[in-house]
Design a binder for these strands. Structure first.
Lengths: 210, 210
DNA sequence: CAACATCCATACCGGTCGGTATCTTTAGAA
DNA sequence: TTCTAAAGATACCGACCGGTATGGATGTTG
């Protein structure tokens, strides 16, 4: 695979058109959802045609799954999971990240909603492949937060009696719920207000809040 | 309008076919979402044809809005809003209702998700009419819970420093979030576990948890 | 050069969609 | 009975969908 840069087969590094299609698909899916996402619109954004798309992806479903893995999962991994894993003080890192996400949120992003949650709500009941790939991301997210809370317990920031697994499950759930509520209201203030309540929940996991 | 039972025009009481279409549409939308809901499938369920549907509803959008108002809103009003409004002890009523919903939840309902949340996530960015009608339900829900918390403050069950509006916003958000998470996992146990964490949040609004 | 695989553009297909025009049937009112 | 309008059935339309078959570039290998 990495024997030579002039290899005969599929070289993912220089595959620019595939990446263009992937990004356009991610944008279209984010706007319209997967089922309503139009192949024609995606191609219009890229300037390419169906020949290019169906050369790189065997079907619309596989394109969607590639968006899930290579765009959504990759973005969360880089922006959230990795920092939480390597943080010395993961609980503060989590709280800071929630604060940051609230402040950096834009009207457009609120209007369209969380890409992960959108696809989860739409596709989980319809397609087991989507459900599996999305589930993997959500499980990873929950796991990262659970480990952060466990590390917080070792550091005395989280009470020892807290069920870190259940708390992590709830944090992820409520986080997506905040996105969803703000999406309907189309208000970043609602998102910030809602997320600050979630911050309160996390703070209440600390000592002195028995 | 109510002058006579033998009136010449549209009598909503004896309009059975309209109700059949409405229920079939609610079911189809619940399964597939609004955009993917097929008029043909709805009519196949009822045994009627397009002539009947487009006699009672001017468009698919208006049919969808009727489902929102006359099925989803009406159901929540009857099963949740009204009991909370008239309860002597609305905080306990809320906690009991959360418990009840968790225990009475079925695999099928978890798989399909919350009808209100499904439509909210799908349609809010796409259609202002849907957004408005759904927003009205969510605002009502939040308001009912906020009033319950305020009444709880008067009864000493909720700390006086609690921001009941923000807390109600978060409760509704997290509630839908729990449903969404369980929808991906397709597990009633996840729903119950998640909702029990939300119960903990509400309990932490009480005295002795400063 | 010739052979070949990659990459992508074009034209086209069957199927489904929401919606409409037209007609028949039904039923209440005079 | 006769008139009238609601109620609903049928056939049909244009638009869009995802997918495919084909052929033409392009560039690498023998």
């Amino acid at each position: 695979m990495s024997q030579s840069t002039t290899q005969h087969h599929h070289d993912p590094i220089t595959d620019q058109n595939r990446e263009k299609i992937l990004q356009a698909a991610a944008s279209e899916i984010h706007r319209c959802g997967f089922q309503a996402a139009s192949i024609a619109n995606i191609l219009a954004d890229t300037g390419l045609t169906k020949g290019a798309l169906y050369h790189h992806f065997p079907s619309k479903q596989q394109l969607g799954l590639a968006v899930v893995d290579e765009v959504i999962h990759a973005s969360l991994e880089q922006r959230m999971f990795a920092p939480l894993r390597t943080a010395d003080n993961p609980v503060d890192t989590l709280l800071d990240y929630m604060q940051f996400r609230g402040e950096a949120m834009t009207d457009e992003a609120i209007k369209l909603g969380c890409p992960l949650n959108n696809l989860t709500q739409e596709m989980s009941p319809l397609d087991d492949d989507f459900k599996g790939h999305l589930n993997q991301i959500l499980q990873m997210w929950q796991s990262v937060i659970e480990q952060a809370l466990i590390k917080g317990q070792a550091q005395g920031q989280i009470r020892p009696d807290v069920d870190c697994s259940a708390a992590a499950l709830f944090i992820v759930s409520a986080w997506e719920g905040c996105w969803g509520m703000a999406k309907n209201r189309q208000s970043v203030e609602v998102f910030q207000l809602c997320l600050s309540q979630l911050r309160n929940y996390v703070l209440n996991l600390g000592p002195g809040h028995a």
